[in-house]
Design a binder for these strands. Structure first.
Length: 566
RNA sequence: UGGGAUGUAGUGUAAUGGUAACACUGCAGAUUCUGGUUCUGCCUUUGGGGGUUCGAAUCCCUCCAUCCCAGCCA
């Protein structure tokens, strides 16, 4: 069995379907064709990454092609702004649709002709029911619907009315073109679904050429057929639409019959993913826009500093199945950290500074300390950092009364200043409120570079920045947008679960001088704190602004919580 | 008995009649010039009940639970 070997490669049920179709000669020329069909009515989010990876990824894996098709059949909600962002986001992920950029609106002419043909064959009719009446005639989940009085309208009259609809003779809502299927079907989608509605909206691409627009159940399957799509993957909620899909693709004259397969959409704890809610967060001004770094949009993720590789790794680990599920936010953070650990350039930034004065270090001396840019990647090279008598260190790296297990700086304790020297604290100064303002210490000149000949160990290592060489910057400490792992579960309103601390802005941070010219797009690790990236909107040469992508894991913080210190 | 779908560690996903597993999380430890990384170990799993079988997560019956569907949205 030659297909046996291939089947072993499949890692999920969609791959099994493809391999089975390939093995049984059900795919023309052995080239599968998939499509990613977003509606340009909002920005792509992390849930779409799964769909993108499935459609583009599977085409790639099996030597096929993937089309980008903008499903633009509702001009009331769609906009070129969204089309542009969608294309930018897919490219950022590293996928390429090549010349296969299509629009459902490209097929309006063909769709119209098919509709006319259906009318001629008595398979579609123009209905004058109002929306309220429609609903009433449709029946309910447990009761069958009733036929519309217009269902038996003559073919000639249907033809005339439909043409007049197209010509703008009637106002919106006056008439509707419906397929004549089965009003008693247990599947509501088969109860004479709407095919065309009147809409006086200017379309982003067809302008005012049309005032009737085709519906999803009609457009989508036929678009797939026109493009010779072999595998049409969509999310679970379209399962009930598959009979409509199969109906549309089997209309006489449509030669190619693609198949639809459904998978579970991606849900992540602490996130909201619906376009409606994301749009609301933007409209209400709760976030800075679609690309706010707290948004789960691809543009938000990019601005936050997540890497495309980590996102692809993430959706790969999540897998593909038909169970509605919620993935732990911790897996997302794990993937981001794992990837950034390999690629981020290490730098020293003191977020909440206090001064450290080395009493036995010459006042006028500055020496350049050599530091690795990335210990995980020697090819990232080294850089020189200025070191002098007065430094900034992290406020939480010094304690007057060190708690149990604390191995940072306290009077009498020796620590290492990263890459530089060992220092031992000798005393400290406080302000009138008792806050530490200055820590005094002495350094061991023999420990230059961060080690000593005697091989003695120090337990703590602090990062530092030379006072006279320090750069200031705005640091945006982002956290989860929602405080609940299931926003809205408790009250029914997801806005009740907004995390009040999702953004903390730090203005007093002190940075090593190399950061003065940091550029958006460069992955950084502020040592011992987290991963950061310069903000693409607000960071300027000489006035950097950084977004926190994700914190480093912090086992000391965990220990403190366990000891009840936090 | 409206229709459609789905139930495997805390979470996600494998295993399709032959020893239930991988990842994340959590816990414990080792290493470490980042309390990061890396490494080691541990915890916890087939929705319930019946049946077929030498053998069932897998096949059959039944019950239960959850999700989706009543837009002129997609």
């Amino acid at each position: 069995m030659e297909e046996t070997a291939k089947e072993l490669e499949a890692t999920n049920f969609l791959e099994k379907i493809i391999e089975d179709d390939l093995a049984n000669g059900r795919v023309p020329d052995g080239k599968i064709i998939t499509r990613f069909p977003p509606e340009p009515n909002g920005y792509l989010h992390i849930g779409h990454i799964k769909s993108i990876c499935i459609n583009f990824g599977l085409a790639q894996k099996y030597g096929g092609t993937c089309h980008l098709r903008l499903d633009d059949t509702n001009p009331a909600k769609e906009d070129v702004e969204y089309i542009d962002s969608i294309k930018r986001d897919i490219k950022w992920l590293g996928f390429d649709w090549g010349k296969h950029e299509y629009y459902a609106s490209d097929y309006y002419g063909q769709l119209y002709d098919i509709a006319v043909k259906l009318i001629r064959e008595g398979k579609a009719y123009v209905d004058s029911l109002t929306p309220e009446q429609m609903k009433e005639y449709r029946g309910s989940l447990t009761e069958p619907g009733r036929n519309s009085p217009d269902r038996d309208r003559s073919i000639d009259e249907n033809l005339r009315l439909f043409e007049e609809m197209r010509n703008g003779v009637y106002p919106e809502g006056k008439y509707l073109l419906r397929a004549k299927l089965d009003m008693a079907s247990p599947n509501i989608n088969m109860r004479d679904p709407a095919l065309y509605r009147i809409k006086y909206e200017t379309h982003p691409r067809t302008g005012d050429k049309w005032c009737i627009y085709p519906m999803y159940d009609f457009t989508h399957p036929i678009s797939d057929a026109i493009e010779n799509i072999t595998h049409s993957f969509c999310t679970l909620e379209f399962e009930d639409h598959r009979p409509a899909y199969d109906w549309a693709t089997s209309i006489d004259g449509i030669e190619h019959a693609p198949h639809q397969y459904e998978f579970a959409r991606l849900n992540i704890s602490y996130f909201v993913m619906s376009k409606r809610k994301l749009l609301q967060l933007v409209k209400l001004g709760i976030v800075d826009g679609w690309d706010d770094p707290r948004m789960p949009t691809i543009s938000g993720i990019r601005r936050r500093g997540y890497s495309p590789e980590s996102m692809k790794d993430f959706v790969g680990r999540v897998g593909v199945a038909k169970v509605e599920s919620v993935v732990d936010y911790s897996l997302l953070e794990f993937c981001v950290r794992e990837d950034l650990n390999k690629r981020a350039r290490r730098v020293m930034v003191v977020l909440d500074p206090i001064k450290l004065v080395i009493d036995n270090y010459p006042a006028d001396k500055t020496e350049m300390i050599e530091a690795d840019n990335n210990p995980e990647d020697p090819s990232a090279g080294k850089r020189l950092i200025p070191f002098s008598k007065e430094l900034y260190i992290e406020r939480e790296d010094f304690a007057i009364d060190p708690p149990k297990g604390y191995h940072r700086l306290y009077v009498g304790n020796e620590i290492r200043l990263k890459h530089a020297y060992y220092v031992t604290a000798s005393g400290y100064e406080t302000d009138s409120e008792g806050n530490v303002t200055v820590v005094h210490c002495n350094y061991d000149p023999e420990s230059r570079g961060g080690t000593t000949l005697d091989g003695r160990k120090v337990k703590g290592t602090s990062h530092w920045v030379s006072v006279k060489d320090a750069v200031s910057a705005e640091i945006r400490q982002y956290d989860k947008l929602f405080a609940s792992d299931n926003p809205g579960a408790a009250t029914g309103n997801y806005l009740d679960d907004l995390n009040p601390d999702s953004l903390t802005v730090l203005n007093g941070a002190k940075l090593e001088p190399s950061l003065l010219s940091a550029k958006p797009g460069e992955y950084l690790q502020f040592m011992r704190s987290g991963y950061y990236m310069a903000d693409s909107h607000d960071s300027k040469e000489g006035h950097p602004v950084f977004n926190r992508t994700v914190t480093l894991k912090d086992s000391w913080d965990k220990m403190k919580q366990k000891m009840g210190l936090k």
